[in-house]
Computed example of a mutant assay.
Amino acid sequence: MALFLFLLLSLISFPLSSTEQACSSYAFSSSPEPFTSCVDLPHLNSSLHWSRSQSSAVCIAYRAPQSPNGWIAWGVNPNSSSMVGTHALVAFHHSNGSMVAYPTILDSYSPSLKPQKLGFPVYNVSAEYVKGDMVIYATVGLIGAGEGDAAAKFNQVWQEGSRVVDGVPAMHSVSGDNVLSKGSIELK
């Protein structure tokens, strides 16, 4: 019984790894600014962090655990809650080892995932890889948010895949959490 109690207390006292850490306790290593709000997303062990920089824009950080060979993406779908039509930010390691991040539009179930201009303003897109987490940073103009809006509610989609082929993210899994990683969010 004493051994069981010791093992139980040992497990409880271990600090959470970054992939299990609540978003509110995550410390960014090179965040462009502090984030005032966050939410742990219900799938893929990821989280979204944000701060309203102006009444019609928000600074975001999307964080997800990932291997150095994989990729992550987070986006907004202005018209529905599905993947198709999502205006996304994608990040992965370039073949030279640096992190790459850019906007793209998911126009089909087999999108090109090449850099594209989005239907709303996006600035300061960057990414980093720290302790098994990939992070995308950006300032995003909020769809439908006007001067003085207290909050903006929209559809979001997030994703991850295990491979990048010739500088382009390869298809993600089409089962489990990968098909459930969508929902709505209100940025206050």
Rank of each mutant, 00 (worst) to 15 (best):
M1D: 13
M1K: 12
A2D: 08
L3D: 14
F6P: 00
F6S: 11
L7Y: 11
L8Y: 12
L11M: 13
F14Q: 15
S17C: 11
S17P: 05
S18L: 15
E20H: 13
E20V: 05
E20I: 01
Q21I: 08
A22Q: 14
A22W: 11
C23W: 05
S25I: 07
Y26I: 06
S30G: 06
S31C: 09
S31W: 06
P32F: 07
E33V: 02
E33A: 15
E33F: 06
F35N: 03
T36D: 04
T36P: 00
V39N: 11
D40I: 01
L48P: 03
L48Y: 05
W50F: 07
S53Q: 13
Q54A: 14
S56R: 11
A61M: 08
A64K: 12
P65H: 04
S67P: 00
P68S: 12
G70H: 07
G70N: 09
W71V: 00
I72F: 04
I72Q: 10
I72A: 05
G75Q: 02
G75C: 01
G75P: 03
N77K: 09
N77D: 02
N77A: 06
N79M: 10
N79S: 15
S81H: 01
S81D: 07
S81R: 06
S82Q: 12
M83Q: 12
G85K: 04
T86C: 10
H87A: 08
H87E: 14
A88E: 05
L89P: 02
A91E: 04
H94K: 09
H94W: 01
N96S: 12
N96W: 02
G97T: 01
S98F: 07
P103Q: 08
P103K: 07
T104L: 03
I105A: 04
L106H: 05
P111Y: 07
P111W: 06
S112Y: 00
L113R: 15
L113G: 00
P115G: 05
G119M: 05
G119K: 08
G119H: 10
P121H: 07
P121N: 12
Y123N: 13
N124H: 12
N124Q: 13
V125G: 02
A127H: 01
Y129F: 15
V130G: 01
V130Q: 09
V130R: 13
K131D: 13
M134V: 04
M134G: 11
V140E: 00
G141W: 04
G141I: 01
I143N: 10
G144R: 09
G144L: 03
A145M: 02
A145F: 00
G148Y: 11
G148N: 13
G148K: 13
D149H: 14
A150D: 07
A150E: 10
F154D: 01
N155F: 08
N155K: 05
Q156K: 09
Q156S: 10
Q159S: 14
G161W: 02
G161M: 09
S162N: 09
S162P: 03
S162V: 02
V164H: 01
V165A: 05
D166M: 09
G167A: 09
G167N: 08
A170W: 03
A170K: 06
A170T: 03
M171Q: 15
M171W: 06
H172N: 06
S173L: 08
G176C: 01
D177C: 08
V179A: 03
V179F: 02
L180Q: 15
L180N: 15
S181G: 03
K182R: 15
G183D: 08
S184H: 10
I185W: 02
E186K: 15
K188T: 05
K188R: 12
